[in-house]
Design a protein around this nucleic acid. Structure first.
Lengths: 145, 145
DNA sequence: GTCGGAATCTCAAGTAACTTGATATGTCGA
DNA sequence: TCGACATATCAAGTTACTTGAGATTCCGAC
């Protein structure tokens, strides 16, 4: 037993999550490079698939970034016609939706990102995976009560 | 059942981890602002507490960043005398260690960061917490086999 | 109807935290 | 000795955010 090992505090949630996030992001960036999307853009598109019609502000809040940051991401998607904003909005709020092309890109990315996640979670048993995801949902307030 | 709910795919690991990471980082940044440390610097100091004598390159690999990025973080810590590099290194590799002041700052931050993590994990039972941390360690290759 | 507060959208500018590029130097084995 | 590999660190660039700001819409109170 060396001195370092004797006095080692437990690993912090912050350290573990930070480390895992970097691992996830590296794989994600690699997968997304093929279709020239940023992680922020992919995230927004994924959320829109689940919840069509969300606004820029709502997407920003879900991604925990500022509205401006989200607007930046969405602008690129609008330019590439991967999402669609209503031409005549009712009021200020813009109900954004995926285009067919946007949907197709998500479909294309599905297997790529699935396999990336499978690789990351390879050392966990299936029940552990479910448990992990459930806990993460709980912690991040996304759990369906 | 709305249309969105019917067709909802499961939440991605990437989304959950990204979201949790942002939550963690916000709390961490707030706690660290008091002592004027960045997350990268705090992480390096924490790792050095567990493993005194690691080099810049080793710290970079552990944090999954480039050596230059780590050097940038460490420079600030050297300037503030929170870490110490050997004046006469044996060879190229510099065995970096915490100073007493650096250690004191980590001691001071301990309870702050503990309570931040407790808040984040408040909805999990203690056994779930242990399980979560264990799984995260496994996934990020930090598990003691 | 008016007003004030809150929220939305988006342009603009700035900042932090990385990255890649580059160079000098030490270590080690053939 | 040489080549390959690794380390440390200066330099410059890039990305993904942030804060600042202003115009506009919505809604409730008066």
């Amino acid at each position: 037993m060396t001195k370092a090992q004797e006095s080692e505090p437990p690993l912090r949630l912050a350290y573990l999550i930070g480390r895992l996030d970097r691992m996830v992001r590296r794989d994600l960036e690699e997968a997304l490079a093929e279709v020239d999307l940023t992680i922020a853009q992919y995230t927004a598109m994924s959320v829109l698939r689940r919840r069509p019609g969300l606004s820029n502000a709502q997407l920003a809040r879900r991604s925990l970034v500022s509205p401006q940051a989200m607007n930046q991401a969405l602008s690129g998607l609008v330019e590439r016609r991967l999402i669609h904003r209503p031409a005549k909005p009712k009021g200020r709020v813009l109900a954004i939706e995926l285009t067919a092309e946007g949907q197709a890109i998500l479909d294309h990315l599905g297997p790529l990102i699935n396999s990336a996640e499978d690789r990351l979670l390879a050392e966990l048993r299936p029940t552990q995976r479910d448990s992990l995801l459930a806990m993460l949902e709980t912690i991040t307030d996304l759990r369906q009560h």
